[in-house]
Write a protein that binds this DNA or RNA. Sequence first.
DNA 1: GTCTATAAGGTGATAGAC
DNA 2: GTCTATCACCTTATAGAC
Lengths: 188, 188
Amino acid sequence: MAKIRERNKELIIQAASEIFAERGFAATKTIDIAARAGLPKANVYYYFKTKENLYRSVLESIVEPLLQAATPFYDDSDPTIAFKSYIRAKIRISQQHPHASKVFASEIMHGAPHLPDDIKAQLMEQTRRSSEQIEFWIKQGLMAPVDPQHLLFTIWASTQTYADFDWQIAAVTGKEKLTDKTTIPLPA
Amino acid sequence: MAKIRERNKELIIQAASEIFAERGFAATKTIDIAARAGLPKANVYYYFKTKENLYRSVLESIVEPLLQAATPFYDDSDPTIAFKSYIRAKIRISQQHPHASKVFASEIMHGAPHLPDDIKAQLMEQTRRSSEQIEFWIKQGLMAPVDPQHLLFTIWASTQTYADFDWQIAAVTGKEKLTDKTTIPLPA
DNA sequence: GTCTATAAGGTGATAGAC
DNA sequence: GTCTATCACCTTATAGAC
């Protein structure tokens, strides 16, 4: 039955996100993913064929939200509103997909060795278009003349740091686990 | 001769920093480290006994500079000068030890599974003392009343992002490799 | 101290019964 | 579709000649 298939694939991707986020691709054993999903290891291979495929599926699960996050740059002609929406969306992603978000960060940090080229291209194109729009706003005098790319880097760094370095932040603040209120209150 | 010993250990740590930074602990093969250092694999084990020891040596090579970076908070009674020095020091570390810096970030991101407890304790203690000093400045009315810990998190994120995500930044900006001038110009 | 050859152990992947 | 038993390979680590 197709329902079982979908349910199991979802269970496996969820378990895989968590363990890949904790340990990284190479340090993760498929048997541990299977155990956390409550299934035998062979099922993981039955559904995903290889460990690498499974890892890519986790990466792909976060790419759609990431691409979606940049739409304010195209919909809106007001930079104040656009940046507010963009930053909100980025923080939401860190909160709603903390594991996949971290897997993605780790992947980028190590030079994206497993990220498919077409996804790389989409993300690059999105960044290019966003920079272009920022450039346009600057030319129109709607915002301060900053380097668009470096502005984006700063936004990425500050919105992702709470998801990526959650262990460090929990350790320093003395919390067991991060909650909504540990992190940045979202602008209304 | 002791000189050969020191030279070889240095060669191996340098090669290890680079490869651990590129691929992470688990994905790194000791034979690749040996090859990059220009030595046979057995020498790596002769000098460091285990792969984990070697990895820890790389981590330890960055801890001293990190602890050193926070001294402005204790030497100086003026927050403006102290923060300027601190941020300079953090950026210097990212520039001068980009590989070890990245290894450290990756380690923290994955919950510091290999970081020795005494080093963890030192880093935590340093953060506690820095927060305390910031608190003190705020009480004296020398700076705006922000949360000291979250201020530190933001500084960490923005100073490390150029080293940690160098691949992404190079890809977006179209540079082959990051140089001094690609990144943030240091305040004088 | 250096290096080759090998042992020991673990992990991704699959065959084949159910 | 599910799962147990097993294979094939790879990597850490070491023994022992030089």
